[in-house]
Design a protein around this nucleic acid. Structure first.
Lengths: 197, 197, 197, 197
DNA sequence: CATGAATGAGTGTTCATTCAT
DNA sequence: TATGAATGAACACTCATTCAT
């Protein structure tokens, strides 16, 4: 597969898949339904994707690629590690809050896929994990974060927290404002539960 | 469904389901395979469970019920909120480390079930969430945790962190010792990333 | 698969396959059509056969097994090699003349199957080839046939001749009497084209 | 279809079909594969052939046309009927032995085509059958063959024998020399199995 | 209570053919 | 003539569930 430039059908199909999966759920999203939503014939799908799983992997790669690189570009302009972290959380929440369909697909529907697909999804997430690691390292270098932090564990804490918060928000049908929680989450991650003295 | 007392087949089937799903994966775990592992006929399954999903929900209820009530009993003997939290983390990790099959099923395989099943699973988890809330409240009452904490968010942070850590451990094939990370996780949750002064 | 005794559905399905293939042709004989003709559900087919090809192989094995063993039993009662050969030809023609459906399936339809299936079909035919070889050997031993015959080539001549004659008869829609040609064919095989002196 | 003169692509496509079918088997020989082998676009095929079946029929017509007319030219130079028959067998074997691809396609692969295709193939073979009939008639006229032979049956015997021998040779992967069997086959056809006196 | 043979709805994928360029 | 992207009909097989015994 080449770049997505000048491959309008490729993107049509991916966008159709996001919509169909978000609205019908993973298991009710037949290839024929995606094709119809994309306005192409069933067979056309297979000119652009190897099989059904490949649609989903590609979907995740394209969308999460965008998701991650937007965060990346934003935080590299900022020097202060805590501000970097705030931006990361803010953009994580913002991007998902702006695209409910995508949020549903990545947080809920794609997780009920096969182990093999989830391994490929994890591959994509590695880029995000590395970015978190770099923010934490920067914080340590800047004397803002404790120097003896277990980097991997911190990353799991940050990602696990954000992921759980977004998933809960979606399960509550986006009834409250996700984005206004950014500062509170940041505060919690940075300072923990304990009373300071 | 009655109580599980004197319903040996009921438990046979649930234990068979855990084993079959852990070893074959969710999608390769047909009812007939579970029946064979349990040593009963396919049709017998339906004398104890409404349908396949009901096996999985019941499995989760039984196993998570145990899981939660063991933690509950342990932490109620402790008064100090931080020690309660340490125990909660410790027992969370311990119980999953002691039963790899169960860990695989609850952390990975059951998550590829339908949205409906996951809603029921969340129902079961509510008991755990309440327990976390109580620990946090106790900490606030005891002057150990900040009084203006957003209780729901704190719970999402704690659960999200523990869940992500356990899932990573399983995806790395249990290659390292989960239990020895307890204190480090506790420290991170209680004190956050920031340098104290 | 056990013996066919007490497996009524097994035989129902095979007989349905013969009828459906003879009437609709190989390529228009879907599993669902065979199931309907057999009076069972589609899925039932797969309780008795591994897959569609297995129906065809089994069909051939069952029917050709009968076909061959009937000829076998008949010719072993006869001692004279030429009479054995006459019986072989006679029963070959008779059995196919008596079951037009089976004749169509084995002579025409099953030959448009995949190379793999045809290899398995050849396996079954080996029993027939051995029988022909034995008749020829007997004829040599009895001083009736030439002693320097190439046994394999003779077998190919006999089988090729019978097969071509039956196929032509079927392609002419069984319009003439196959069985009354037995003596003429025997004469041709035994004495060849040449004028005797 | 016009004559093949000045229709280079027409022959390119037919030769590509022979190669592709011989190497991949009938069922794995998609139109697109033949087009690629021929060095033309898929759509171009349909400028020269009505549909896929038409490629195969034309292939058979072209190749068998050659096959038959070469035999025809050879035997008309010979007057003795037995020598005619020897030449016919010899050239039948020789031509197929010299072009393994063609032999595989005509003896094995094309036979797994639909009944309709095989009817058209038979049409082409009629020319060959007539030629055999003429050789047999010549033999009778020359007093070499019995006068009361059933011409049609003799033709089926001769063709069935040659066809079966060639098919066996191909199924044994051309492991032995087909051509050196000519005299033995001729002897068998002319004199039959019986001892002469 | 227990059995297990039978059911039948549901779907990803292929590939011959078309037609706008 | 020539192209090749797009089409869409067609089908074997699985497996959760039932029910006669």
């Amino acid at each position: 597969m080449n770049t997505k430039i000048n491959r309008p059908k490729y993107n049509q199909i991916i966008d159709a898949a996001v919509k169909v999966i978000a609205e019908n759920g993973y298991h009710a999203s037949q290839v024929s339904k995606i094709a119809k939503q994309a306005g192409v014939a069933d067979g056309t799908i297979y000119l652009y994707f190897k099989n059904k799983e490949d649609i989903l992997v590609s979907l995740f790669q394209e969308k999460m690629g965008d998701f991650i690189s937007k965060i990346e570009k934003a935080i590299e302009k900022e020097t202060d590690a805590i501000e970097k972290l705030r931006l990361l959380i803010s953009m994580h929440f913002n991007q998902l809050a702006e695209d409910h369909h995508l949020a549903i697909v990545t947080q809920l529907e794609l997780r009920q896929s096969s182990k093999e697909l989830r391994l490929k999804i994890n591959e994509v997430l590695k880029g995000y994990f590395i970015m978190i690691d770099q923010v934490v390292s920067a914080g340590i270098d800047q004397g803002l974060f404790q120097s003896d932090l277990n980097n991997k564990m911190v990353r799991q804490m940050i990602f696990g927290t954000l992921d759980e918060i977004v998933t809960n928000w979606i399960m509550k049908d986006h009834k409250y404002d996700l984005v206004q929680q950014v500062d509170e989450v940041l505060e919690l991650i940075v300072n923990g539960l304990a009373v300071k003295n």
